[in-house]
Design a protein around this nucleic acid. Structure first.
Lengths: 330, 330
DNA sequence: TTCCTCAATCGAAGCGCTTCGACAAGCTTC
DNA sequence: GAAGCTTGTCGAAGCGCTTCGATTGAGGAA
């Protein structure tokens, strides 16, 4: 079952290069200066033997695991592709810093955080999809494990948070519709449950959308099944016949909204305008293609990981980072 | 930054329980018999102090990391929600066995496998979305790292593989359509590129679909943008006006197929039948709802993890496990 | 009683790495 | 040319855990 050699150790490398094990360690870490010739010999030995330091030994001796945890909410209702992009972005960025990523689900909750902290299996933590009142936040503060949150809890004091500026996203959508000459506009959001759970981003989009819109702006939560969407759009139009702009912040509903509008005789892009907050594919897969504000999952993930790396190195990072939304016109 | 105590060690637990460190270790691992009273005292000390063994130290001493890697393809064209379900299922199941999951992307390729194997950061490996000719497979064999593959490479000898029985899935779809009285049927698959890449499941669905269908069955690769789908469906109908059944194995295309059929005046569920291979939501979010064969990502993930755990314990597992497809009629 | 066994526990030896202090050379600097 | 720096390297001491004898005392067999 095992390959040959069964574990190349630093001693093997040292022997082959004719130096002490500590010298190999210093060559690899760069923590002390080593003559170029020695370094060269060591690097050759490393390559020849295919040496990789034993992660456990390294973590034990250096008190650095070289692993960060990422806690993802795998509950329903999240838009999965976005999460996946996030995960992928985080892994890629972490690998650039020679770190691995441990995947945790939010089900483990605060106890999971305590476990990984105490077992020193990870050096730091990225917490996705933080809610306004999130039970993990208190534990996190107590543990003092370096961490970066995606999303903003109610009390973000002392925490490092990163997110799309959803307030701005809401505002951008409203502005887009206004510029197209829409007098009465509506935000068709996620289902009531999402608001009830106090998901930060849903609330902030609403605020941004309403904030600058003046009168004539409505917010309407909406489930994402076809029937409800159809009904909701009909009701919005019935309640306000002058309505001529909708922002949709509900990925699966976009297609259904377009149908409902077509059924109502609205010509999207002409006498009616629609803008989407969501992934590009969603806005591209309908006809006509819609303008949209992207949730830049990869950028967020990268930023989060980079911030975490800086924290692990004892460097400063801003407490709060809001990524500017970009409106893509199609 | 740090919590109080800065690391509870086994020595702390031992001191509090009035025993030797080795005794604590034996209580925790159950590898030697310990009197109930002592065990009890130790467990109390563990709980009181919130002790969790240091993962690195444990891995160094016991040569078991308590972590398995999961390598996911994060390339485009995969249906992300399914991957996510898979990941979530794997993490949940792994936690039941007291293991953590390290997330790797397929970009790291064979070198990534070599790295994790050599650094002993993981005990085993789950490889998702294995292709017919997969460069990772050879490395895997050479490394001898315990592993389970999702999907079947061309030469699966000596490997443990798990997958949905896609051949049966193709057959089930064909049979469903036949039973509904469809004489001429087609399989609308993923884009040409997926077949070109020799993705195992695409090929096997095709074989299963054609296998028992006798004459009158076609397979048509198809990109997933609305325009191509529309065109492809039109062409299929033009080429064979008698066509009255389609199996769609292309998640994003399902909605567009339904439109195209409606445009062509076909009444799905009456004079025309459609069946989907894909997630439930996809089949439920169109009108009328369609029958579908689910890719049981969670089941596959659980099975894969369970097999891996058995291998880590030196137990036997079947080389090849095919999960039976289930057709859900709606 | 004496000898043996067995269950329960302890102490010590590593696991492979990092890191600290030491120490030779080879430089300056006066 | 002695004193003081640097620079490059080494050896040894752990990091916190598991595991392998060794040890102790109690119970049974003889």
């Amino acid at each position: 079952m095992a390959g040959p050699g069964r574990g190349v150790t630093i001693a093997d490398v040292a022997a082959r290069a004719g130096v002490a094990a500590s010298t190999v360690s210093y060559v690899l870490s760069g923590k002390r200066s080593i003559s170029p010739e020695t370094a060269d010999r060591v690097m050759h030995a490393v390559a020849d033997l295919g040496y990789h330091p034993h992660a456990g030994a390294r973590s034990l001796a250096s008190r650095r695991a070289g692993v960060v945890a990422m806690m993802l909410p795998l509950r329903d209702g999240m838009h999965l592709p976005v999460l996946m992009q996030f995960a992928s972005g985080a892994v890629t960025e972490a690998r650039c810093h020679d770190q691995d990523v441990l995947l945790m689900t939010a089900d483990e909750g605060p106890a999971g955080l305590a476990r990984v902290a105490a077992s020193a299996i990870v050096d730091g933590l990225i917490l996705m999809d933080v809610e306004v009142r999130d039970p993990r936040v208190e534990t996190l503060r107590r543990l003092g494990l370096p961490s970066v949150l995606i999303g903003f809890p109610a009390d973000a004091a002392g925490l490092t948070c990163v997110d799309l500026d959803f307030t701005a996203a809401g505002r951008v959508c409203a502005e887009y519709l206004r510029e197209r000459g829409c007098g009465d506009i509506a935000l068709l959001g996620a289902s009531e449950a999402v608001y009830a759970r106090r998901t930060g981003f849903a609330e902030r989009v609403r605020e941004g959308f309403l904030g600058r819109s003046g009168p004539g702006a409505t917010v309407q939560p909406c489930p994402d099944d076809p029937v409800s969407v159809q009904r909701t759009v009909k009701e919005l139009l019935a309640a306000n016949p002058a309505l001529n702009g909708i922002a949709v912040h509900n990925e699966p509903a976009v297609g259904h909204v377009m149908h409902a509008l077509a059924d109502a005789g609205k010509l999207v892009g002409e006498d009616f305008h629609v803008v989407v907050i969501g992934p590009d594919e969603v806005a591209e897969r309908v006809h006509p293609q819609l303008p949209s504000v992207l949730v830049p999952a990869e950028t967020l993930a990268e930023t989060a990981v980079r911030h975490l790396m800086r924290k692990l190195d004892g460097l400063d990072v801003p407490d709060s980072t809001l990524v500017e939304p970009q409106l893509t016109i199609r």
